[in-house]
Amino acid sequence: PPQTPIRAAMNSIKLLRGDLPSSGDQPSSKLTTYFKNCTVDPSQGIQKRLEMLGQVFSPKFGEAVGPHCIAYGRERFNLGVRLYYKVMESMLESEEKRLSVQNFSKLLNDSTFHTSLLACALEVVMATYEESSFKNGGGGHGEGEQAGRDLCFPWILNVFDLSAFDFYKVIESFIKAEPTLSKEIIKHLETCENLIMEKIAWRTGSPLFELLKREQEAGATEQAETPAS
């Protein structure tokens, strides 16, 4: 049958759901082994963080879409968690191959890493669902269209109180680690990347300024380089 925007969106959702094991709301045995190999086991911290972020996400989703949609928010959060675990496992496999280490204690106990990774997984889930309301141009889908706009990036950053700069760090590794992402979703993540680079990362309070300051201080003792164009 011809590919309509709605059919394309439905296929993306089906692919996303089908691709994620229904038991994936818990870490796989492989991922559990990575946790156990850590100097400090991150399992409890990860579980607690997910519970806390889930309690934050659903009400905010309800605020943006409507109180009768909180259950959809929970559903999307659960899909996001499954994608988060799947991508985390794939990222660690690549890192193990690249660095020849199995102890990722520092990374796996870094709260910012987990929040950024989950935020990226949720952005993918929501962009997959919102594809239908964006492209549909309204036709009887008024509420969905409004919701799409409200839930649009950088909505997730505000929900998780996450800096754009930290979110930016996971995007490329996320795309590398999840080869089943559709071209539309990759393009969406690239749009988020550009938005961060051009605008959001430069807002007051961004950790980027602190990083630049530290780099400058560290560089002050070294020989000054000729400014690049």
């Binding site: 990222m91 690549s94 890192e95 690249r98 660095l99 990722f104 520092k106 990374l107 870094d110 910012t112 890493f113 760090k169 996971v170 490329e172 590794s173 795309i175 590398k176 071209k183 990759i186 393009k187 993540l189 690239e190």
Partner: peptide
């Protein structure tokens, strides 16, 4: 078609981006 431009080198990964060794 759309191709994402990967900026990270082969020797770089998520560990470096979050300051981990």
């Amino acid at each position: 078609s759309h191709d994402y431009h990967f900026g990270l080198e082969e020797h770089e990964g998520i560990s470096e981006l979050f300051d981990c060794d």
